[in-house]
Design a protein around this nucleic acid. Structure first.
Lengths: 146, 146
DNA sequence: CCTAGTGGGTTGGAAAAGTCAACCCACATC
DNA sequence: GATGTGGGTTGACTTTTCCAACCCACTAGG
């Protein structure tokens, strides 16, 4: 029996390791230097080194040299990395509501207001609460063992 | 130096361990039995046992007994767990786009159409792309070491 | 010149987590 | 009586993670 082929699992294979998403969060927050990411996440240095390498080879992060002697690098989100922001936002909102007493981060939208994220269906425009949806496996050669 | 206090990190502390979110995915897909979750995720049995315990004590999952002799249980999402669906959706959509060649799961909204998720700002109704937002630390006693 | 600090790592060893295969028990089915 | 299922537990083994220390090239201060 083979596990369910799934884009959630594929995404987690890229950003699901411990510290990876926190590193992405820092980059999204505009923190680009190794030492700062270490301090702000609390990640061990060697692990962070490893994570940044993996994120880089997965195309989520890119290294930019800002000094030659000695060689020094900044880390930036690629387009793929940038598109993780909705993931961070929904995760943060869930955390605010269910895993934390007092909100610790305020996201501000360009409209000037505090961002409260609403997930809507592109087709009908209606809000997606999560309760009102079904999942259907597209890969025909896979059968769930329910 | 203390790490950044953050709801993303708080959320990850609850559902960020390996296999946890895949287990939640199965529950969201309507798979409620231990053996099926094992098969569909590929998680080792002992780890899954552990994860379900942790998710349960975090209030994301609840156990329901459906047989007495022998005692048998089903796992269901609580309200907190159910609200992880947007996280799964945005993660899945990111995976579809950046981590997988061919989409493997189709989500259908109650409107009957295939769900394509759009993230909008509740205040102005505009789409949130991720590029157009700022994060601000609310905890005043924390200073970023950028 | 000497010292301290910064940036981006690497190294080694100990502790924790994950993996795998086997086992268990209570029932149901054939 | 043999086989299967559901929901685990156990023990041995492997892999990750963690932590503290170290390194090197440079900069800034006195």
């Amino acid at each position: 029996m083979v596990p369910r082929p799934c884009s959630v699992q594929a995404a987690l294979a890229v950003i699901g390791e411990k510290w990876s998403l926190l590193a992405v969060r820092e980059l999204a927050f505009g923190v680009h230097r190794f030492d700062s990411i270490v301090r702000n996440t609390g990640a061990p240095r060697d692990i962070l080194t490893n994570r940044l390498r993996r994120l880089e080879s997965a195309g989520v992060v890119e290294k930019r040299q800002y000094s030659e002697h000695p060689p020094r690098f900044e880390y930036h989100l690629t387009e793929a990395g940038s598109e993780l922001r909705p993931v961070l936002l929904s995760l943060g909102q869930w955390g605010d509501r269910w895993a934390v007493d007092v909100p610790t981060v305020r996201f501000e939208h360009t409209c000037g207001e505090a961002l409260e994220l609403v997930h809507t269906c592109k087709a009908c425009g209606g809000e997606v609460t999560g309760r009102d949806l079904k999942a259907e496996q597209l890969t025909s050669d896979w059968t769930s063992a329910a």
